[in-house]
Every structure is written in structure tokens, then in C-alpha cells.
């Protein structure tokens, strides 16, 4: 397949006399334009990474991981509280999203399969997958922040869980469907009840894929900013363990500090941006390789 593409792609040498020049020009234009488009894509990613590395590395120091974010106008400081806050909320979000997502994915692939309900859930889940995250922020604000009377890390975690769930549902279903039905039938023939067949056979067969879905969800929510603006907000001190009030977190910290007039805040924003982007890109690359090997199996 690839070899064939190369042959076709090399554009068979056209004999000038036999091909109208208009056709040749159109062909050259297409080849030029599509190569240019690809170069632009690569260039943009390259320039984003270059920007983050050049600006972010300047601010890297051990203090980053030990000091909390400084107040307005004060010197120095780090982003330790924001890192910790982000880790806690992301972890809580995944903790909620994983069981719900895996079970819903199991319903779609095993119990529901071709039922009307499964079709509806599948369709709406796909829509939820690309729904604007700011709307999810508004939803959680109405659901939790307003009744509780305060921004909280719990609300932030719920918003992140809602964003992570559709990703996990989708990958779980896809991966469970790759497990051959003969395995299920073999399990059922031994007299195993459906729950046993699912947990001991299909889940086990698709475990690497399901874990990948969770990693992808992690990569998706780690950089989400908009929903956290209305739920966890941000804070310049260490947060209390009950997670009430503004909880510091990397994305909102980056948003507020990058647009602030203080140079040390801007520097911290760049360092945070570098940290978060490297983490997310690493997570997505890992997930991609696991999915590829899983599909190839």
C-alpha cells in the first residue's frame, strides 16, 4: 500500500508533448499546495514547541516545585500549589470518570449492542465528546457552585469528570468490540454468567486498550481551562484539604498570569505552560502507540 502510494506519488514522468499544459499546471499546483499545507502544519507545531521551550526554560528552577504562587506584586514564588491542585482535581476527575465510562462502554459493546437505547447513548456520547467545554463549566456552576455558595475543587473535579467520561466510553466500546465473540461464547459455554464473561474475558482481553482510553482522557482534561474558570477558579495560596474555595490549578494560573502585568507572574505562566504541554504531548504519544499495537493484534 505504502509502496504503491510512493509510486503514484512520485508523479509518473509525463511526456511534455502528450499532456496538455493546463493539466500539468493543475497537477503541479495541487502537489505544491498540499505539500505547503503539510509544511504549515508541521511548522506551527514546531513554533509552538520552540516558543514554550525558549520562554519556559528560563523560568525553570527547583523553587518552581516547592514554592506556592506569589501574590500580586511580590517577588519570586513557584507553582507548586497549582501543580498539586491540578493533580488532585485531575485524579479525582479520572476516579469518577473511569468506572462510569468503562461501565457505559461495556453496556454499549456487550449488553446493549444493537438496542435502540445503545444507539441513542452512542450518538449522544459522540456529541458530548466534542461539546464546548465552557458549557460543561456553566452546567457544573449551576449544579454545584451556586447551591454550595462557593467555588470548590469538587466542582472542578466533576467538570473534568464530565469531559473525560465520553472519551473513556468511546475507547472502551471500541476496544471491547475488537475482542472476538468466540471468546465470549467459549466463556458462556462453560456456564459463566455474563458478568463473569465480561470481567474475566472481554475486559482482560481489552485491558491495554481501556487503559489507553483513560490515558487519553487524562491528556484531554489536564489542559482544560474554560470549565475550571467557573468551578475551581484559582488561588495564590495552598488549598485546604476540604477543597472548598478557589483551588489553585495550572491552566487557570497560566491564563491569569500570562495576561498579568508582573514579569515574574508571566515567567511562571511560561514555565507552567511548558510543563503542562510536555506532559500532555507525552501522554498522547504513549496512548497512540498502545492503541496502534492493540489494533494491530
Amino acid at each position: 500500500m505504502d509502496a504503491l502510494n510512493t509510486v503514484a506519488g512520485a508523479a509518473p514522468p509525463l511526456q511534455a508533448s502528450r499532456v496538455r499544459s493546463g493539466r500539468r499546471v493543475a497537477d503541479k499546483l495541487l502537489i505544491g499546495a498540499s505539500t505547503l499545507a503539510t509544511l504549515i502544519g508541521i511548522l506551527v507545531l514546531g513554533s509552538i514547541l520552540a516558543m514554550l521551550i525558549i520562554e519556559g526554560v528560563k523560568g525553570f528552577s527547583p523553587l518552581l516545585f516547592t514554592e506556592p504562587t506569589p501574590g500580586p506584586g511580590s517577588e519570586g514564588g513557584g507553582i507548586a500549589n497549582a501543580i498539586l491542585g491540578s493533580l488532585v482535581m485531575t485524579f479525582l476527575g479520572i476516579l469518577v470518570a473511569t468506572p462510569v465510562g468503562v461501565m457505559a462502554g461495556t453496556f454499549l459493546a456487550e449488553y446493549g449492542r444493537n438496542s435502540k437505547l445503545a444507539d441513542l447513548v452512542r450518538f449522544l456520547n459522540d456529541i458530548l465528546l466534542s461539546a464546548p467545554s465552557i458549557l460543561i463549566g456553566l452546567f457544573v456552576y449551576t449544579l454545584m457552585v451556586r447551591p454550595m455558595g462557593s467555588y470548590s475543587g469538587w466542582a472542578g473535579a466533576v467538570a473534568l469528570a464530565i469531559i473525560a467520561t465520553p472519551v473513556i466510553v468511546r475507547t472502551t466500546e471500541d476496544m471491547l468490540r475488537l475482542v472476538p465473540s468466540t471468546l465470549r461464547e467459549a466463556g458462556a459455554a462453560l456456564g459463566a454468567p455474563p458478568s463473569k464473561v465480561i470481567t474475566a474475558i472481554t475486559w482482560r482481553g481489552a485491558s491495554a486498550g481501556i487503559v489507553t482510553g483513560i490515558i487519553l482522557a487524562l491528556a484531554r482534561i489536564a489542559g482544560e481551562t474554560a470549565p475550571l474558570l467557573f468551578t475551581a477558579l484559582n488561588n495564590n495560596s495552598w488549598f485546604s484539604p476540604n477543597l472548598m474555595g478557589g483551588v489553585p490549578n495550572l491552566p487557570v494560573m497560566i491564563y491569569q498570569f500570562a495576561l498579568s502585568p508582573y514579569p515574574n507572574w508571566q515567567q511562571l505562566a511560561w514555565a507552567g505552560a511548558l510543563l503542562i504541554t510536555i506532559t500532555i504531548l507525552a501522554l498522547s504519544i504513549v496512548a497512540r502507540f498502545v492503541i496502534k499495537s492493540e489494533r494491530a493484534r
Binding site: I42, M51, G223, T225, A226, A273, I280, L281, S284, I285
Partner: peptide
């Protein structure tokens, strides 16, 4: 090209 999708939107903003 696919990694462009993983870059958080706030980074695009910056």
C-alpha cells in the same frame, strides 16, 4: 499533525 489536536487551547491562545 494529530499532535496539534493535543495541544491545550490555552497554549494556542498564548
Amino acid at each position: 499533525i494529530e499532535l496539534l489536536a493535543s495541544v491545550p487551547s490555552i497554549i494556542y491562545g498564548m
